[in-house]
């Protein structure tokens, strides 16, 4: 329980999506790109990427990790740590690599990459679900306060 998602410096990263908005990013035009161009995903040595966690990697500006698709979303999943059993169903089926999981523990959601599809909520096996969809601008504290009670068997 020592690490929190906020400590990993992954959530609400200030640099995310910067280049999508800024004109200063030096891009080649469509008629300047030649065949055989290479986009480097990392700065420097990338030979041991498979053994590095996201926070240890040196992503280049061309890696979509540094981009954001948060504007696609109209509803967002909210995570309730108190009910979660760390089954990792949401991790394996998240199509957007947005479930942050470290040391067999679910830590939270990467809201810069989440598109709000709702698959994580559907595959959550707990009762009540430990992930639920709320409006994009809903408040975290209010959402957690609104959390449904455990359903009895006959109500299911």
């Amino acid at each position: 329980m020592s690490i929190e998602a906020q400590d990993l410096d992954l959530l609400a990263n200030d640099n995310r999506g910067k280049h999508q908005l800024e004109a200063g990013f030096d891009l080649l035009g469509w008629d300047e790109v030649t065949q055989g161009s290479v986009l480097a995903s990392f700065e420097g040595d990338a030979s041991d990427v498979a053994h590095k966690k996201s926070e240890e990697r040196t992503y280049s500006n061309y890696n979509s990790y540094t981009a954001t698709v948060a504007s696609w979303r109209v509803i967002k999943p909210v995570y309730n740590r108190d009910i979660c059993i760390d089954c990792q169903n949401c991790w394996v089926w998240c199509p957007d690599t947005s479930i942050i999981s470290r040391d067999k523990q679910m830590l939270g959601i990467d809201y810069d990459h989440c598109k709000g599809c709702g698959i994580c909520v559907e595959v959550c096996p707990t009762n009540p679900k430990s992930l639920l969809m709320f409006g994009e601008y809903s408040d975290l504290g209010e959402s957690l306060a609104d959390w449904p009670e455990k359903k009895k068997k006959e109500e299911k």
Binding site: S64, Y65, V69, D110, H113
Partner: peptide, 22 residues
């Protein structure tokens, strides 16, 4: 799944596939 989840993803988010694409 818990052990599987200790892997480090090498496919990054913020691709532009539809939400919910398999």
């Amino acid at each position: 799944l818990k052990e599987f989840s200790t892997n480090n993803d090498r496919f990054e988010g913020a691709h532009t596939l539809c939400p919910g694409c398999a």
